[in-house]
Design a protein around this nucleic acid. Structure first.
Length: 683
DNA sequence: ATTAGGG
DNA sequence: CCCTAAT
């Protein structure tokens, strides 16, 4: 699968870059992209390339760190393409972008980012657990736990956006938030949907004339979330996102297009809204306090949330699309650490937890006696059961950058798009125990230490974006929809024979609609293969690691929003098509046909060659034929020992050489005028 | 859409 | 095979 990260850079007004994008026009673009695609990209290389080749010629001192990536990083320290980087200049002063007030008056959301960044930086530097975070933030201006509120963040947003996002950051004393703060979630989600601006977005039209600051670049994204079931629900108004070479032109010309998209999106939104609202009304575990949600409801809830994301997946342009027109855009990033703010607004899951309390000594002694806690007894089986209360899942952090002139509705859309972008990339669950990520899926809870009551308090779950692609076996056929797993997804989770106790459906309930893992393996898949949460052993690393491990998908340490940062976007471009085509080596007979056609037609008429010799071979494009010819010529020139694959008869290779020579000569002879169609070296 | 080349 | 610039 082709991996891509959308990198980009933007400016806060006329100030320093805050985000790094790799513009299409950048000199080093290619190498960056290449490197990015390489399986084992060295972070320093990446950094150096970016720093040297791209935007900041004068700033060549950068540091890079991994801020996220596969949960099973290679143990050799190299980085995989899925890893997320943050790159920032060593000299941070150079990127000072001014104070909050400046931003408010003259720029855009930079203030929020900055302040937010500061705050996060503060807490992140300790690689804190949630508890620590809350403590930390409680001492801030706000006085409320950071869990759900970042005063600076909210403040700035209010300043910049006239309160547009205030609802998302409502400050609420912890005590007032009943069970697991579910209420806030409800408010936010509902609020989002209900208030979605139904206007075609003045923002777009007004800004569409704004000249894009720079090109942008895509790298095909490797991530392919299983597509299928939701697609039928989509409104096919969206253009293919792949041919993204267009500048603002598309947006500019296409104000109608844009409007359409938005309108339809609004319809869609309405539907979702209704759906969600009914769901909430009926099922919401958050409607009353003291009433803990049960797992079933939770599943439904999450399901709904995710559904939103998927459903909207195609109807919504990826933020960056419009970004070019806005001259600003939305950056989303994954910062699984310390993002409680956002977390509180997303598929947060709150589960009532039964009591549980395991006696460590019993475990260690491996005694197989049932242990009764509270009212419920443990199974008489060999294992004790651990009951967990998942107060919340962390979800990736988002950063939004949007013009002051933007409407609140558009802001909401952007946020939603960002959410969608992340969700559609797929997520899995990470488990943290006392801040340490448990990476070995094969460990038993006992081995991992998830058994003692005291430790369970420090058990954390985290929703992590999948940085890997689901292999396309069932997608090669582009038409076969992925099975939609039922939301009462207990079964998919237990399918794996290697499932650990964690996969017990009674404890893990938050992963409703992952595809059947058995369906995502393909011969083509490699280490990038999708790992179904919890039941596939990690290959490279069986050691627990602290979250500060650079290979872990974890907190951004001391993240400074002024810093130049590369923010990968979870934007799998047209997932249904972006898969690298399966490799299909040419058979000898195909080579024969190709050679014959080229002998006849020459080397500059691949379309004709295609029609002539491969008209019925749908998978062979004229580009393929051209490429094959290229390799054939090369093959013919090297020694047989150097050749690989199915050997091509020397006779054919000789003909290749002869034809190549002949047509090269023809081409040299008539550079501008190709030989007549009837011409043929064999004539 | 095709062609031509680099990756 | 992919990605693109250039036609």
């Amino acid at each position: 699968m082709v991996w891509t990260k959308r990198l980009g850079y933007g400016f806060n007004g006329n100030q320093s870059p805050t985000m790094l994008l790799v513009p299409r026009s950048a000199k080093g673009k290619r190498s960056v992209r290449k490197k990015s695609r390489d399986n084992h990209t060295n972070a320093i290389d990446m950094l150096a390339t970016i720093a040297a080749d791209l935007l900041l010629e004068s700033e060549k001192s950068f540091t890079a760190q991994v801020i996220g990536g596969p949960s099973n990083p290679t143990s050799n320290g190299t980085l995989k393409k899925e890893h997320l980087f943050e790159v920032k200049p060593i000299k941070e002063e150079a990127f000072d972008q001014g104070s909050c007030s400046e931003s408010v008056s003259g720029s855009n959301g930079g203030c929020a980012l900055k302040e937010h960044g500061k705050l996060n930086s503060d807490v992140r530097s300790k690689n804190p657990t949630q508890t620590e975070l809350m403590t930390k933030c409680s001492s801030g201006d706000c006085g409320y736990p950071f869990e759900r509120h970042s005063p600076c963040y909210a403040e700035c947003w209010e300043g910049n956006l006239a309160g547009g996002i205030r609802a998302l950051n409502q400050c609420e004393p912890l005590a007032n938030r009943s069970p697991a703060s579910g209420k806030v979630l409800e408010t936010c989600i509902l609020g989002e949907l209900m208030q979605l601006d139904s206007k075609p977005s003045a923002l777009v039209s007004s800004d569409s004339s704004v000249k894009a600051p720079s090109g942008e670049d895509h790298i095909p994204h490797n991530t392919s979330f299983p597509t299928g079931w939701w697609e039928e629900k989509q409104l096919h108004l969206d253009r293919d996102d792949d041919d993204d070479d267009e500048n603002c032109s598309r947006c500019t010309h296409g104000s109608t297009i844009t409007s359409k998209v938005f309108r339809s999106h609004d319809k869609q939104t309405d539907r979702i809204k209704k759906l969600l609202m009914s769901k909430f009304r009926k099922d919401s575990p958050f409607s009353t306090n003291g009433d803990f949600p049960n797992s079933v409801v939770d599943k439904k809830l999450l399901f709904s949330s995710r559904k939103i994301g998927y459903t909207r997946k195609r109807t919504q342009r990826y933020p960056f699309k419009r970004r070019k027109c806005f001259e600003r855009g939305l950056m989303s990033t994954y910062d699984e650490a310390a993002n409680f703010e956002y977390m509180s607004n997303l598929p947060e899951i709150n589960m009532k937890v039964e009591n549980f309390d395991m006696d460590a000594s019993l475990h260690e002694a491996n005694i197989k006696s049932a242990h009764i806690t509270g009212q419920r007894s443990i199974h008489e089986s060999e294992d004790f059961h651990v009951k967990l209360r998942i107060k919340s899942f962390k979800v990736p952090e988002l950063f939004v950058e949007i013009p002051k002139s933007a409407t609140v509705g558009s802001l909401k859309r952007m946020v939603m798009e960002a959410v969608t972008a992340i969700l559609r990339g797929g997520i899995h669950v990470g488990v943290l125990l006392q801040g340490k990520k448990i990476r070995d899926d094969n460990k038993t809870l006992l081995q991992a230490g998830i058994s003692h009551g005291d430790k369970l308090d420090k058990l954390g779950f985290i929703l992590e974006p999948d940085n890997v692609t689901l292999s396309p076996p069932l997608l090669t056929n582009h038409e076969e929809p992925s099975p939609l797993l039922p939301c009462n997804a207990t079964e998919p989770l237990t399918r794996s024979p290697s499932a650990t106790p964690l996969a017990d459906p009674s404890t893990i309930i938050a992963l409703p609609e992952f595809p059947n893992p058995s369906a995502v393996n393909s011969p083509e898949s490699d280490h990038n293969s999708f790992h179904f949460p919890m039941d596939v052993p990690l290959q490279d690393d069986h050691q627990d690691e602290t979250s500060s491990d650079s290979r872990a998908l974890v907190p951004v340490l001391a993240m400074n929003m002024n810093a130049l940062s590369i923010v990968p976007i979870q934007k799998p471009k047209r997932p249904e098509h972006s898969q690298r085509r399966i490799r299909r080596p040419f058979s000898v007979s195909e080579v024969e046909a190709l050679v014959q056609a080229v002998e006849k037609l020459g080397t500059g008429r691949w379309r004709d060659v295609k029609i002539r010799a491969f008209d019925n071979a749908n998978h062979r494009t004229y580009v393929d034929l051209k490429d094959k010819w290229k390799t054939l010529v090369h093959t013919a020139k090297i020694t047989p020992q150097q050749r690989r694959g199915e050997p091509v008869p020397q006779e054919l290779l000789d003909r290749v050489l002869a034809a190549h020579a002949y047509w090269s000569q023809q081409q040299a002879r008539l550079p501008t005028k190709p030989p007549p169609a009837e011409d043929c070296m064999l004539n």
